[in-house]
């Protein structure tokens, strides 16, 4: 493990006056893959939303490459190099696929290279190229996920956060998405992946954190987690 690139320092946040994340610290090295697992409703998504600035921290600090990013607005944080593919994809429903992808290249650094980025995404997801002028609201679940992932690749960010990339998809499409994720890892990008399905992470993630009730209660790698019967049974329904 190298030096911490993305650093969460005892963060605390939540909704409507209640803390969902109750003091979480993480060090994520540049180019590493972190898996976040845990039962539903215990703060996985909230951590991603806190990192990308969609919700404000009540306490603690988040820094990227030594610079504090917590407290900035979401658009600034994204501009500093963190892309977030949210749960439910949040594609722009009344835009075409191409327009959605171009929105991914909104930031100046990505806008300058939007043509190359578009080619790159089209290579990864030929389906998106075929349907480039289709309105996004008519897409199937799998296509929408591809669009969501493709759109965040357009941002050309160092850090990519994906919220349940396999949720609700057919196994074949999950394979395809994870192939893309693996190729992102080999490009040396830093990845944070929230996943219900631990087996998808075992060979991919450098480190896995298990979240329960707003705390990280376990850290380790995939094999250790899968071999720990008690943890699997208690938290992960295995």
């Amino acid at each position: 493990m190298g030096e911490a690139f993305l650093k969460l320092d005892n963060i605390r946040c939540g909704y409507d006056g209640q803390d969902v994340i109750k003091g979480v610290s993480m060090d994520i090295a540049r180019g590493s893959v972190l898996g976040l697992v845990g039962p539903n409703g215990h703060g996985k998504t909230t951590i991603l939303r806190a990192i990308s600035g969609l919700i404000k921290l009540r306490d603690g600090r988040i820094s990227l490459g030594g610079e504090t990013i917590s407290g900035s607005s979401a658009d600034r944080i994204v501009a500093s190099g963190i892309a977030h593919t949210p749960q439910g994809d949040l594609v722009f429903p009344e835009m075409t696929i191409n327009e959605n992808l171009l929105m991914g290249a909104y930031l100046p650094r990505a806008h300058a290279h939007r043509k190359e980025r578009l080619r790159y995404v089209h290579e990864l997801f030929p389906r998106l190229k075929e349907r480039s002028n289709q309105i996004a609201s008519g897409l199937s679940g799998g296509e929408r996920r591809m669009l969501g992932v493709g759109r965040s690749l357009m941002t050309d960010s160092e850090v990519l956060m994906m919220d349940e990339p396999s949720l609700g998809l057919a196994p074949l499409i999950i394979d395809q998405i994870y192939d893309v994720i693996r190729s992102l890892k080999s490009e040396g990008r830093t990845l944070i992946i929230v996943e219900e399905n631990v087996s998808r992470l075992t060979d991919l993630a450098d480190e896995i954190h298990l979240l329960d009730d707003g705390h990280v209660i376990w850290r380790g790698n995939g094999e250790e987690l899968v071999s720990d019967d008690v943890l699997m049974r208690t938290y992960l329904g295995g």
């Binding site: 979401a74 658009d75 501009a79 722009f92 171009l102 929105m103 991914g104 909104y106």
Partner: peptide
């Protein structure tokens, strides 16, 4: 235009627009 797309994106989904780096203010 880039600005026009940002306006439409903001209208469709504020959070998603933010995540694309659109300064919605």
């Amino acid at each position: 235009t880039r600005m026009g797309r940002a306006i439409r994106a903001t209208a469709m989904n504020k959070d998603a627009a933010l995540l694309m780096g659109v300064p919605i203010g």
